[in-house]
Design a protein around this nucleic acid. Sequence first.
DNA 1: ACGGGTACTTACTTTATAGTGCGTACCACC
DNA 2: GGTGGTACGCACTATAAAGTAAGTACCCGT
Lengths: 120, 120
Amino acid sequence: MTEDPARAIRATNVFAANCPSRRVLDHVTSKWGVLVIVALAQSPMRWGALRRRIEGVSEKMLAQTLRTLEADGFVLREAQPTIPPRVDYSLTPLGRGLADRLIPLVTWVGNNADEIVGAH
Amino acid sequence: MTEDPARAIRATNVFAANCPSRRVLDHVTSKWGVLVIVALAQSPMRWGALRRRIEGVSEKMLAQTLRTLEADGFVLREAQPTIPPRVDYSLTPLGRGLADRLIPLVTWVGNNADEIVGAH
DNA sequence: ACGGGTACTTACTTTATAGTGCGTACCACC
DNA sequence: GGTGGTACGCACTATAAAGTAAGTACCCGT
C-alpha cells in the first residue's frame, strides 16, 4: 500500500479520460458528498441528525448523495423496521479510508478560507 | 498551525451554510480544478501542455478553471508578450499547500477506483 | 497568399445539479 | 379523531455547469 505520489498517480492515470477514477473522483468531491463523509467520520448518525448537521442540504439532495455513497461502498445504511422509522448511517472501512484523506483537505480549506476569499 | 481534525473543523465550521469555506471547497473540489492543481503540482506547465495532460477538458473549461484558481490565489499566471503567445502556469505557495492535501486523496482514489466501481 | 501555431473569447445548446412542494406509512399521544 | 414525528419518493421547475463550434490576433515559414 505504497502512496508515493508520483508513482501512484502514474499507476492509475486520473488524467486519462476513460479512467474509472474520474467518475469516482466526481462522486467523492461532490458538493454534499464531502460534507456527508466528514460528518459521518465524526460519528455515525441518523438521517435527521445528518440533515440538521449539514446546513442547507435539501432532503432530496441528502437522499441522493447518500444513495450514491452507499452504492460506491463508502456508507453503510441500516434501517430498523421500527415505527417511526429509524435509519442509521455510518462509514464502511472504505469510507473511513476516504475520510482519512478528505479530513485534512477540509480542515486546511477551513483554516485558509478567509485568506482565500479575501484575495478577491 | 495545528491540524487536529476534530478541533480544526470546529474552528471554522464547514457545516454552516454561510461559511466562506463552503465556496472555497466548491472551487477546490470542482471536476477540473482538482486535476489542474495536481497536474501543476508535478511541474509548472504552459496552457497547451495542461490541455494535453488533462484529457477531455475543453478549452473553455480549462480557461474558466484557471481563472477561478488564479482568483483564489492557488495558481500563478505568467504571460510572455511574445508571438506566438506563451503563458506559464504554476502553483503559488498557497496552491502547493492545497496540492499537499489533494494528492493523497487523488492517489487513494486512483488505487481504490477499481474496487469501488466493481461494487455496483 | 495561405496554412499553422498559440492562447484564448464568445454565443449557443445540452446536460447535470438543485430547489419546491406534495404525498406516504405507521403509530403514539392528546 | 386530529396532529406530529420519521425517512423518505416523485414530479416539476429553475439554475448552474459543461460541451460544441466558431471566431480572434499576430507572425512565421513556404
